[in-house]
Amino acid sequence: MDPVQQAKDICLRLLTARPRTRVELGQALARKGVEDDVAERVLSRLDEVGLVDDAAFAEVWVRSRHNFQGLSRRALAVELRRKGVAEESAAEALANVDSEAEEERARLLVRKRLRSLGDADEATKVRKLVGMLARKGYSEGLAYRVVKDEVRTSLLDETF
């Protein structure tokens, strides 16, 4: 089989599963033993026809991972960098998640998790909730502030 056609087939198969960045496709082609010049030709052609668009990928990735996984801007920036998205494209996509949206998402995550912590004492709740937010990339200051507010609010709700 023609190496260009083979490389194109690999890329199209990967793109059928989910959108991917140019770097991800390049890495997949390298793992399959596709020569660099063939990979570059195929990737350039996919760019030209709009099947590979790192800026669009970054926007969709950020929206999805922030809304459904609750990841912070910092965690999203790390993921985009790992996927090979250019800094400029990543910054534009991350600009859609402002501080207010990030804090509101953190509050929603804490409220949801707080319900499952039941009768745990306040210190345990704070430790577990701050840890959860830290794993999702939220800053320590934001995590503590949000958790303290939400734990205090839940304690007040329990007394009434």
Rank of each mutant, 00 (worst) to 15 (best):
A123R: 11
V49F: 03
E150M: 15
R41V: 13
V130Q: 02
L76Q: 10
G70F: 04
G141H: 04
R127Q: 13
R115C: 03
V126G: 02
E87L: 11
V126T: 09
E102I: 07
G137I: 07
A55Q: 07
R13G: 11
L76S: 11
G84A: 10
L117A: 14
D36P: 02
V52I: 15
G137F: 09
D149V: 02
Y138E: 00
S64A: 14
L12H: 02
G26K: 04
P3E: 08
D121S: 07
V147N: 08
V60S: 12
V23Q: 09
E104M: 05
T16G: 10
Q5T: 15
L29N: 03
R113V: 01
A7K: 13
E158S: 14
A106R: 09
T153K: 15
D53N: 15
G118I: 00
N67E: 15
L71H: 04
A77P: 02
A77W: 02
L114F: 07
A101W: 06
L155M: 12
A56R: 13
A77T: 00
S72K: 03
L109D: 04
R111S: 03
L14G: 08
R115I: 08
R105C: 13
E79G: 12
E59T: 00
L15H: 05
R105Q: 13
D149R: 11
D37E: 05
D54V: 12
D121G: 08
D37R: 08
K83A: 15
V52N: 07
E35S: 10
R41S: 15
V126F: 02
P3K: 04
Q6D: 12
D119T: 13
F68R: 08
L14E: 14
N67A: 13
A77H: 02
Y144E: 13
R41G: 14
E102W: 10
F160Q: 12
L76Y: 08
K112Y: 03
D54L: 06
L51D: 06
K32N: 10
K128N: 13
T124G: 05
K83G: 01
Q69N: 03
V147K: 05
H66L: 01
L25P: 07
Q27L: 14
T16C: 00
N96H: 14
V130N: 00
E92A: 14
E88A: 13
H66P: 00
A75E: 10
L46A: 10
E35M: 05
R152T: 12
S44D: 15
S154K: 02
R45N: 12
L108Y: 04
E102H: 06
D2S: 14
S116N: 03
V62G: 04
R65E: 11
G84T: 06
E40K: 09
R113T: 08
L109N: 07
A90M: 03
R152G: 00
D157W: 13
E104D: 15
R65H: 15
L129P: 09
